[in-house]
Structures are given as structure tokens and as C-alpha cells.
Write a protein that binds this DNA or RNA. Structure first.
Lengths: 155, 155
DNA sequence: CTTCCTGCAAAGCCTTTGCATGAAC
DNA sequence: GTTCATGCAAAGGCTTTGCAGGAAG
């Protein structure tokens, strides 16, 4: 097992140091949650996670911290549409998201080929491109079953 | 010149009829605005546009109408990030968006090759895919100049 | 004639802000 | 010791809701 997986809080602390962001317990917990879970959590999930692990935190701090991490390009914001709540994701390896429109579960696909379009975008528009995001919307396998069953029950 | 370009309100009315959506002046104006302008307007821009053209409308109706059009897959919502305001776009021909992070201008690129990834997403995740969106973030040519000038003025 | 859209105002919710305390470096 | 993060509570802004009147089909 890799050291990083054993001490996520330490890994997060190091990452903060690397980016010259002042280390606080709240920031370490929030970042380590984003780095290790693959839940793409919402603000509320993050807030509950931090408190649930015995750390004090306020919503204001969650908002502040997420904005800070976004500004440093450590994480990205995902518009999860149905429900209208933003979700957050540690973004080291380029990947795209497949989002369930029913339960909002988000799955990663680690294929960065979509990044190739950044060049085309630059050439066709003259924009100086920094970044791009690809998102796919559909129904996850569980929700496909659930909805099929609900429909069957109506018959 | 094509007929559609001459009578945008009529075209919008027909589109509503085609989708079996009850025709009202507000809906016609909103849809025709989205179909003809390439501004990817925000809620507020739509509200002002409708009133500016001599039609009565309330914010509640703008929200209702946009949600209705989204539910019928006539338009899509774009998360324009900086500023946090949603933008709306008539979405007939598949295309992706290049968004200026400084002035929020959104430009279309009509290359649907990104849609090919939907198949991969389906195979890799088991999701039943409906839809996908690709967005590129950068600086538009005008803002590149503006920011370069501002920087020069500091010297 | 029935359905259901509009628009107002109120309610609701999420996010941001200001400021005092206290922690990080 | 200085800087700056935290957290509370209050303010702010956007979006939704309920309901009465009225338009669309």
C-alpha cells in the first residue's frame, strides 16, 4: 500500500504546503476528503464530513476553502444540474464526468482525449485557452433498474 | 434570405407547436431570442430583452419558461462559472462553448466530434447516456488585449 | 369551457460579508 | 509579533411558490 493512502491528512497538508497555502485543520480535512473520496461531494456533504470526523467547521469556511482551492487549480467545480447543487472534485489527472440525472451520482472516466479539442478551440476562436471540461448526462445502472421496476409495478 | 430569419417570432411559435407547448407571447419571444441571438443570455438578459421589446413579463415566467424549454430538450443551461450566473442556449446543432473567464463572452464551435465520447462513456460506466456538454475556458481576444494593456500601463 | 399560464408578492434557500477571536508561521 | 483563517450572525441575492385573474386551445 502506498504511503499516500495511509495518511491522507498528511498528504493533503503537504499539498497545501506545496501550493503555499496556510495549513489549517479545516483545509487539510476538506482537501484530503476531496483527494481520497470519489464522491464529488457537494458543499453540504463536505460540511457534514468535516464535522462528522470531529473537526469544527462553519459553512463560511467551507465556502472560503473551496474557492481558495479552485483559485489554485487544485479542484474544480461541477454543475450537477438536476438539483442545482455544485459538486467539487480534486482534479489532478485529466478526466471527464458521467452524471446520473436521477440520483446525481458522478463517475470518473480517465480518458483525456477530449483535451485535444482545446487546440481546435484556440485556433477557431482566438481565445487563450486555460482549461476545459466535458460532462456526460445519463442514467446510472442502479437508476435504470429502479425506474424499470417502478414502471413495471404500474402495470 | 431565408424565411426563418425574417420572422423569428413565427418560427418560435411553430417550434412550440411542434413540441406541443402552449403558445404564449412570452414563450415565443423568449424562444425566438434564444434561437436567433448568439449571446447565450442570462436570466436577466432574457428578462430585459422581453420587456425591451414591448412585451410584459415577470421573472417567474422567465424561470418557468426556461425550465420548460430545458425539459423539452430545446435549450441547454451553461454554467458560466465566473459570476455564477447560468446562461441559456438554443441547442439544435451539436456544438461546444468557449467561455471567456474575464468578460463571460461565450462563442460556439460547431464541431460535434466530442459527441463520440458518449459511446465510450456508456461502455465504460454502464450509464444510459442522453446528452453531453463540452466547455472550454480561456480569455477572449479582446480581454487578452485589455489585460495586456492594463499590465503595460503599470510599468 | 377547461386547462393552465402569467405575474405579483412573499417565502425560502444558498452564499457572501463584517467583524472579533484566535490560530499559523 | 504579524498575518490571516475561523465562525457566528446578519445581510444579500437569486429562485421558487401560492394564488387570483385571465389567456390559449
Amino acid at each position: 500500500m502506498m504511503a499516500e493512502e495511509q495518511k491522507p491528512l498528511l498528504t493533503a497538508a503537504n499539498k497545501l504546503r506545496e501550493y503555499k497555502i496556510k495549513n489549517t485543520p479545516q483545509r487539510q480535512v476538506i482537501l484530503s476528503y476531496l483527494m481520497t473520496s470519489h464522491e464529488h461531494p457537494s458543499i453540504e456533504m463536505i460540511f457534514n464530513y468535516v464535522r462528522g470526523n470531529g473537526f469544527s467547521v462553519s459553512l463560511a469556511t467551507v465556502y472560503n476553502t473551496l474557492q481558495l482551492l479552485i483559485d489554485h487549480n487544485l479542484i474544480i467545480e461541477i454543475a450537477s444540474d438536476s438539483g442545482g447543487h455544485m459538486r467539487y472534485d480534486y482534479f489532478e489527472e485529466p478526466h471527464y464526468h458521467v452524471i446520473c440525472v436521477n440520483c446525481n451520482k458522478i463517475v470518473d472516466v480517465f480518458d483525456k482525449s477530449y483535451k485535444r479539442l482545446e487546440t481546435e478551440a484556440m485556433e477557431k476562436t482566438g481565445y487563450q485557452v486555460f482549461n476545459s471540461q466535458y460532462e456526460v448526462y445519463g442514467l446510472c445502472p442502479e437508476c435504470q433498474l429502479k425506474l424499470r421496476k417502478e414502471k413495471a409495478d404500474l402495470d
